[in-house]
Amino acid sequence: MENKVILVLSDQLGQGDKNLGEGILETFFTLLKQKEQKPKAIFCMNRGVFTMTDQSLVSVHLKELENQGVSVLACKTCADYYEVSDKLTAGKISGMDKFIELSSQYEVLTLS
């Protein structure tokens, strides 16, 4: 896991029931933060930026991962579009250039 970047494209995992998808995504990050090996970074795009706000229970886990040394980044264009730039409780705003840099160095695991 330490040589990976996790790309979060949605505030839920999968395209079925919204509540189920949110729960599955929260479980993923709950288990991830307990692992010894952590990803290099977590980059949130599109509706994935909502996971970095109080609107999502995932934000608590992202904050803990950030405290464990994982870079947690939000796409600036997406955060601006959804008007959440000033509502992030975990991570920080970043640009697409940072994601391109990370994806050229590490394997990308996409959650959508």
Rank of each mutant, 00 (worst) to 15 (best):
M1H: 02
E2V: 14
V5G: 04
V5F: 02
I6L: 09
I6E: 05
I6V: 12
I6Q: 04
L7K: 11
L9Q: 10
Q12P: 10
Q12N: 13
L13W: 05
L13M: 12
G14A: 06
G14N: 05
Q15P: 05
D17I: 06
L20W: 04
G23M: 12
G23E: 14
G23Q: 12
I24F: 07
I24R: 15
I24D: 14
L25G: 10
T27K: 14
T27Q: 15
F28Q: 01
F28R: 01
F28Y: 06
T30L: 15
L31M: 15
L31R: 15
K35F: 08
K35H: 11
Q37M: 14
K38E: 14
P39S: 00
P39Q: 02
K40E: 15
I42A: 03
F43D: 11
C44Y: 15
N46T: 04
R47Y: 11
G48N: 11
V49C: 02
V49M: 00
V49Y: 00
F50C: 01
M52H: 07
M52A: 04
M52Q: 13
M52E: 06
T53V: 01
D54Y: 02
D54W: 04
Q55K: 08
Q55F: 04
L57K: 15
L57S: 12
V58F: 03
S59G: 01
H61R: 13
H61P: 13
H61L: 13
H61G: 07
L62I: 02
E64F: 03
L65S: 12
L65H: 03
E66D: 13
N67Q: 13
N67W: 05
Q68N: 09
G69S: 05
G69A: 03
V70I: 10
S71P: 07
A74W: 07
A74V: 04
C75E: 08
K76N: 03
T77N: 14
T77S: 08
T77D: 07
T77F: 08
C78V: 12
Y81F: 14
Y82N: 06
E83S: 01
V84N: 07
V84T: 10
S85L: 09
D86Y: 06
D86S: 13
T89E: 01
I93W: 00
I93V: 04
G95M: 13
M96S: 05
D97F: 08
D97V: 06
D97I: 11
D97A: 12
F99N: 08
F99Q: 08
I100D: 00
I100Q: 04
L102T: 04
L102G: 05
S103N: 13
S103L: 11
S104V: 07
Q105V: 09
Y106Q: 10
Y106D: 08
E107Q: 14
L109T: 04
